[in-house]
Design a protein around this nucleic acid. Structure first.
Lengths: 109, 109
DNA sequence: CATTGATTTGGCTATATTGCCAAACATGCA
DNA sequence: TGCATGTTTGGCAATATAGCCAAATCAATG
């Protein structure tokens, strides 16, 4: 070891993992993942539920797909998305436990 | 239901969860969490491993602490951080499975 | 109390992300 | 082919995030 491994946050493994987690780090995308737990949905259904512009929803879906979390299936002129890696959902239980352990630790802004 | 629930991504629960996930969505912070799996570390140790400015590392630690993922413990003039919610680590296994299921799905940039 | 070592905070610039609109692409069907 | 429906892409403005330096804190100790 010379310097601290050049710059640790450039390590490919960390970057790859970060890409997946980053894909989940947006309220709309989190909503999409939770909704798809119930089954596949087309872009139009998700858009109606979310209430943002279709193009915005489409871009969120694209981010989740590129991260490998969703897969899409085009049927007719609609595109259906579904969860490719359902274990993602197990994580939310843990996230909840983080939230519950937050009694009042410092500034919760 | 009127409009799509005002704007779904503003729902408090989604925002709270997002805050936790967002805290994990940076290579340096991911590294910190993985490192703390082995035991508590002071800021100076983490800084040496990471190789960024101390102030940068301190801010990353602060983000993880505010998200409820880490807790700190000041002893003498050093501050030691440790994992408050170790279940976070289970998630990484799932993240790996996402990565491994990525054969060649579209542009992996 | 001055100094040193450890950490946090303020401030600023550079970069990344988000969301909308408009336009481009399909697909199905008259 | 022409049109309607559904989806993606390009582009841009607004906002958020990251990282460094400098300065402020805080504890230990001479």
């Amino acid at each position: 070891m010379q310097t601290p491994e050049i710059y640790i946050s450039q390590k490919p493994q960390l970057l790859a993992r970060t890409r997946v987690i980053k894909a989940l780090s947006h309220p709309t995308r989190l909503f999409i993942v939770e909704e798809l737990e119930k089954g596949e949905r087309c872009v139009c259904e998700l858009t109606a539920m979310i209430g943002a512009d279709v193009s915005t929803v489409s871009k969120h879906l694209s981010i989740l797909r590129q991260a490998g979390i969703l897969e899409d299936d085009k049927r007719g002129n609609q595109v259906f998305y579904r969860l490719k890696v359902p274990c993602i959902l197990n994580f939310f239980g843990c996230v909840e436990s983080v939230l519950h352990s937050q009694r009042q630790h410092d500034t919760l802004r």
